[in-house]
Design a protein around this nucleic acid. Structure first.
Length: 275
DNA sequence: GTCCAGGACC
DNA sequence: GGTCCTGGAC
């Protein structure tokens, strides 16, 4: 199933990655710090979102919410406002909730523990691993899209439906324990270039799927509703319906209900507002 | 205009 | 296995 690497294969692979990194490393602000809060914010932003779009948002967000405490005590509406343009607003709510938990559960700071980090909202095994590697320099095993590309490209040439379960033992075998932080930076930079040049190896991942269209979707409507309310105004159903337009009329009430249940919205006297 | 990148949670 | 956003590339 998963190949066991020889010492020579291992050395060749590591050399390829390090050599590429030496000449083509990408510079990013969150790579210049080991501050757990800064790393945490960057990793949540980088979930499902490309580096280019995160850069400015990262700087603005930290300017507005400089510490766990200031994020924890902020209004959710302010956090969502700061999040605008990144998409997947649930991440803003998770981040806000996570800050609350960090302040209450981990007064001494973020724990250097992958399992424990993965109990925080919005943090799964992979983001927890990234935080451990980048904030604490720990030799943990995790996978994300760029890393996935690298291992499929090198070790599963011509194969289809490659699962992460097959990749993880290889990531573990090849992990350079002398400097996990730089090693993962190097892997991700190599993976990013594989996408840019030639066919994307991740299409051969068992976890690849084509995404549905955005125009007219519930996702689009959710974004539109939050954008409408993010400035703090309270609006009646009819006002929201008028603002989001005819094409969303059928699903508006259901979307409002979802957003209310998720903790984004509240309603008083038939007027909706952002919490 | 159409396609596509990006993990967590239910 | 379905759902969640937005902007940039083509």
């Amino acid at each position: 199933m998963t190949p066991r690497l020889t010492a020579v294969q291992l050395e060749e692979f590591r050399s390829s990655i390090w050599d590429y990194y030496q000449h083509h490393r990408r510079s990013m602000p969150w790579r210049e710090t080991a501050d757990p809060y800064h790393i945490f914010v960057s990793e949540v932003m980088l979930q499902q979102t490309q580096v280019a779009r995160v850069r400015q948002k990262y700087a603005d967000f930290l300017q507005r919410f400089p510490s766990w405490h200031e994020l924890a005590v902020a209004r959710l509406a302010d956090v969502v406002q700061q999040w605008q343009g990144l998409g997947y607003n649930r991440r803003a709510r998770f981040l806000h909730q996570a800050a609350g938990e960090v302040v209450s559960r981990f007064a001494c700071g973020l724990p250097a523990d992958q399992q424990l980090l993965a109990t925080l909202p919005g943090i799964g095994h992979n983001t927890a691993g990234a935080i451990c590697a980048f904030a604490f320099g720990m030799p943990v095993v995790f996978i994300e899209t760029n890393i996935r590309r690298v291992y499929i490209h090198f070790f599963f040439d011509g194969r289809y439906k490659v699962s992460d379960t097959q990749l993880l033992p290889l990531i573990e075998q090849t992990l350079d324990r002398s400097d996990p932080r730089q090693w993962y930076f190097a892997l991700m930079d190599y993976g990013a270039t594989l996408k840019a040049h030639g066919s994307n190896p991740n299409r051969r991942s068992a976890h690849y799927s084509r995404q549905p269209g955005f125009e007219g979707s519930r996702r689009q409507l959710r974004g539109a509703v939050l954008r409408l309310l993010v400035s703090g105004q309270r609006l009646a159903l009819a006002d929201i319906a008028a603002a989001v337009g005819e094409q969303h009329a059928g699903s508006l009430e259901s979307v409002l209900s979802d957003l209310e249940n998720e903790g984004f919205l509240a309603a008083e006297q038939a007027h909706y507002y952002l919490r």
